[in-house]
């Protein structure tokens, strides 16, 4: 009886955890990773690396090899071929080609020990921000200030395609860290050409699918609801970035930023990342980016 009691106590207080055998885990075949988001301002800049198993102990590292090279095609005509070059101890795979709107670009990357990887995308047009009209409501309290801003972004009318747009707003705010200060900031009432559309927003960015509509005006209301005390000095200026993306880039950035945004949220659903690299992983995507700073 005594032994039975001892066995029971040992069982009850034994840890309720078990380390699974790694072999049970889905296997991962390491592939070449090629990352390149190109545009008029930053051209083509590749980074090569290799994928790992989530259970791999090794850190990620950039792959460099003297015999590795990239071929770049514009509308299926090869326009550049380049290898690694070193500038100020940094190693790049970079092309001097400037992408042209509505041209299709394709790349092929060769790296010893890996299969050839390739990908393609079409360069969208840049959407110029012609004007920003804003009207603000600042609720000034003794201990903080909350801001509601009605904005109209007037866009140039020269572009043809804008199915996938990412808008980003940055409001420089100096926060006195001695006082706990929290703001619930929301972007609401989005209207494109006065038509209400569905959108997604997180991490200060709006991800908009225009479903084929040509957009030349974006109206948005940015609300701040204060819910705690603190000391803030708010600068009266706002940076707006508007990225006209290919579908590939849009989905990649949306999903990747979402995955990063949720990194420490245990309740967040997993976010798979889209991949347009044949025989490998990564992104070869196009983005036309415009930035404008305005004061209010």
């Amino acid at each position: 009886m005594r032994y039975l009691v001892i066995i029971l106590v040992v069982l009850v207080f034994s840890s309720c955890e078990k380390t699974e055998k790694i072999e049970d885990y889905p296997t991962h075949k390491s592939l070449l990773v090629s990352n390149c988001i190109f545009g008029q301002s930053n051209g083509f800049n590749f980074m090569l690396s290799k994928s790992l198993s989530p259970l791999d102990n090794a850190p990620f590292k950039q792959l460099v090899h003297p015999r590795a090279f990239v071929k770049l095609f514009e509308n299926e005509v090869m326009v550049d071929s380049f290898g690694f070059r070193t500038v100020n101890n940094n190693t790049f795979l970079e092309s001097a080609i400037v992408p042209k709107p509505n041209f299709k670009y394709r790349f092929e990357a060769f790296f010893p020990g890996f299969a050839k990887v390739s990908g393609e995308d079409i360069m969208p047009e840049i959407i110029d921000i012609v004007d920003v009209k804003s009207s603000k409501i600042v609720k000034n309290y003794d201990f903080s200030s909350a801001l509601t801003l009605d904005m109209d972004l007037i866009l140039s009318n020269t572009h043809q395609n804008n199915d996938y747009i990412i808008l980003e707003f940055n409001r420089p705010v100096d926060i006195d860290t001695n006082g706990a200060s929290y703001f619930y900031e929301d972007l609401t009432g989005l209207k494109l050409n006065n038509a209400t559309l569905e959108y997604e927003h997180f991490d200060n960015k709006l991800y908009i699918k225009t479903n084929g509509q040509k957009i030349n005006q974006i109206s948005i209301r940015r609300e701040s609801i204060e819910y705690a005390y603190g000391i803030q000095s708010v600068q009266n200026k706002m940076e707006v970035s508007i990225a006209n993306c290919s579908k590939t880039t849009f989905e990649y950035l949306r999903r990747f930023n979402l995955q990063q945004y949720n990194e420490f949220d245990p309740f967040a659903e997993p976010t798979p990342i889209s991949n347009n690299i044949i025989n490998g992983y990564g992104i070869f995507g196009a983005m036309g980016l415009t930035m404008k700073e305005f004061t209010f």
């Binding site: 990773v33 690396s49 198993s53 990620f60 990649y252 990747f256 930023n257 990063q260 992983y281 992104i283």
Partner: peptide, 9 residues
């Protein structure tokens, strides 16, 4: 099932 460095953050 796999992991690799991302392009943008």
């Amino acid at each position: 099932t796999g992991a690799y460095p991302g392009a943008v953050i």
